[in-house]
Simulated assay, not measured.
Amino acid sequence: MRRRSFFALGTAGIGAVAVGSGPADAAPPPGPQGGDPLERALFDPAPPVRLPDLAAALTRARADFRAARYDRLRTTLPALLSGAAAERDATSGIRRERANAALARAHVIATEVAVKDSADYAWVTADRALTAARACGSPVAVGEAARVLAITMRRSGRIASAVHLLTTTAADFDGDDSANALAVRTSLLLTAAYTAATGGTAGAAHALIEQAQESAGRIPHGLAGELFTVEATAEQCALYRVGLATALGDPDAGVRHALGLNPARLPTAERRARYYTDTARMWDALGEDRRTYEALRAMERVAPEEVRRPSVRAITARLVHSPVRLSGLRPFATRTGAFTA
């Protein structure tokens, strides 16, 4: 991997403005071909967007993702994706590298949203994220893009290939003790550990999460790196241990980690929602319907849009048919789209 200084795309100190001149939250008019605006943006032409505007739009998109405002992202990301691609194609030299860096991170966020929606075009956004990241020469961007591509690979059953991509990319950061390098390495190893767990390889999963824990512990105090959608912290490692245990078919082992982790210490609504998602899956696997429902209700309080994800709705739908009487479950299932009367 080529190593060079990372171009900061305005993740701090830049005002949150939307791409284009219209209102930030205004939905683009539907195209004549219909369909998902985010998916269409991957193929529709658009005018270039200047680098400062791309940086500001990325700042806003990152904030929206971390706050679990996915409906807003589905509205604003199309202009960001198509505008960044057009700017990249219209420029050269350092401006082109910077446009590629913006394009990579825009596609990382788009992939995160597509994965939450269980959308097939996550493959396209993830592949484009990695292509743009490699073109811009930023190791941080390459690491972030490799992580979301591996997630799409895992979800399609390509477990071994996903773990290989994650671990080989993480190895590119060996020997680099900067906060950013350690943060990327940690996030890659955490995802690799969970991916290995979904494939049933317990030894590899536990070894990888221990490596991630060690890497996170070497990040200088007060610095968490500049990753775009996740943080590399001790709390993050504990959170992954919950999901890892459930994926390995041993949810009892996850209970200790879940009860020992205060979700309020997780820095974003998206991560706190992930805690409740993982604990809901854990309690569901243990047959604890009431605790499963409590986790889902807590998720709705911190990130209402998360409970409408297909994978979360599936848990709610199962509870609807549970013999345990759960107060308020039917209205909850109805408003989250898991049940229709």
Rank of each mutant, 00 (worst) to 15 (best):
Y275I: 04
H107K: 13
Y275W: 04
R95A: 09
A273D: 03
A303R: 00
D177K: 11
A145I: 05
T277L: 09
L326N: 02
A253W: 02
T76H: 14
I315V: 15
N180V: 07
A280I: 02
N262P: 12
E300T: 05
R256C: 07
A63N: 10
W283T: 01
Y70M: 08
S161N: 14
L223N: 13
R62H: 05
L227A: 05
A338P: 00
A110I: 06
Y275R: 06
A234E: 12
L58P: 00
R4K: 12
R88G: 09
Y275F: 14
C237S: 13
T76F: 14
D174A: 15
P304A: 09
R281F: 14
A247W: 04
V230D: 11
T229H: 07
A146I: 03
V17E: 09
P29R: 14
Y276K: 01
A133P: 01
F173L: 08
C136Y: 02
A16G: 05
F339P: 03
I315Q: 00
A333R: 02
P267C: 14
P139M: 08
A55M: 15
D71G: 13
P30V: 06
G137L: 09
H206E: 15
M299T: 03
L239C: 10
G260Y: 05
R308F: 02
R147E: 13
I315T: 04
A114N: 03
A170F: 10
A68V: 06
C237T: 13
R330I: 13
A234Q: 11
A26D: 12
G10W: 00
A56K: 15
A333V: 11
P32M: 06
L54S: 02
A179G: 10
D176F: 12
T169H: 01
G22W: 09
E231L: 07
R274V: 10
A46P: 04
R50F: 14
G83R: 00
D117T: 04
A24M: 12
T198W: 11
R69V: 07
S327K: 11
A85D: 13
F173I: 01
R281L: 14
A102D: 11
S187W: 06
Y275V: 05
T233G: 04
Q213L: 09
R155Y: 08
S161L: 11
C136V: 03
D89S: 13
E305W: 00
L182Y: 03
L244V: 03
A99W: 00
G254C: 03
R218N: 13
I14L: 10
A212Y: 05
L38M: 15
R134Y: 07
Y240P: 01
D289W: 05
R313T: 10
R271H: 04
G203V: 09
E87R: 02
M153N: 04
S118M: 11
R313I: 13
S138C: 14
Y293M: 05
A61L: 07
T152W: 00
R88D: 08
A317I: 08
A192H: 03
T168S: 11
G260S: 12
R281G: 07
E294V: 03
E97V: 01
E226H: 13
M299I: 06
R272G: 02
D252C: 05
H221M: 08
E39H: 10
R309A: 13
P331L: 10
A181V: 05
A106K: 00
L296N: 01
L38T: 04
A56D: 10
P48N: 02
L326V: 04
T186Y: 00
A171R: 14
A314E: 10
H206G: 03
R256I: 12
P331K: 08
V312S: 00
D278H: 08
